[in-house]
């Protein structure tokens, strides 16, 4: 598995993951109202009598921008591991959300993953599978630093003074 630590592999996975998240953010940023209506369907952030409507709306307004920001960071390589950590956390959150609606039998016809209008994927097993794939990529970027001259020398014991 040495190839996993090849810098080129690391770059390709990181840029690919970032591109997926940038792409996922665009339609939601363009159509926040439609995305808010999808968020409501998950019934996790409300709206409800206890929470009111603000948490779900705020979530719908902020999440796409978070996806865009971590996407740009993953593509450019700036603060990459921090971005990957947030990406992994988001993907776990999406997994929990999809699992929740599947267990509860809530019908989310349009997952709101990449687009918010027209036909979308429904919350189901294929969605869980692709989510797990992205999670693996995020954990890889987070946990498997590529070989560099610096990391090789850091791994070696310091010569005695």
């Amino acid at each position: 598995m040495r190839w996993l630590r090849h810098p080129a592999v690391y770059w390709v996975v990181s840029i690919g993951l970032g591109a997926v998240f940038i792409y996922a953010s665009l339609d939601k940023i363009a159509h926040p109202l439609d995305f808010a209506r999808i968020v409501y369907r998950y019934r996790l952030a409300g709206p409800s009598a206890a929470l009111g409507v603000v948490p779900a709306n705020a979530f719908a307004v902020i999440l796409p921008w978070l996806e865009a920001v971590i996407g740009v960071l993953l593509v450019t390589g700036l603060w990459r591991r921090e971005a990957a950590a947030i990406t992994a956390a988001l993907l776990v959150m999406f997994l929990v959300a999809v699992g929740y609606v599947m267990v509860q039998g809530i019908d989310v016809e349009h997952c709101g993953c990449f687009t918010v209008g027209g036909e979308g994927r429904s919350a189901g097993w294929t969605l869980i599978a692709s989510d797990l794939g992205l999670l693996a990529a995020a954990l890889y970027v987070l946990l498997v630093p590529p070989r560099t001259v610096a990391s090789v020398s850091a791994a070696e014991p310091l010569p005695a003074a």
Partner: peptide
Amino acid sequence: ILLAATGFGLAWNSFSGRGVALGRNAY
């Protein structure tokens, strides 16, 4: 990163003309 995303999101929501009224049901 979280703060920046929140800032971008709220700013876009206020100034883009496509924003959601945070206190209003999107339905």
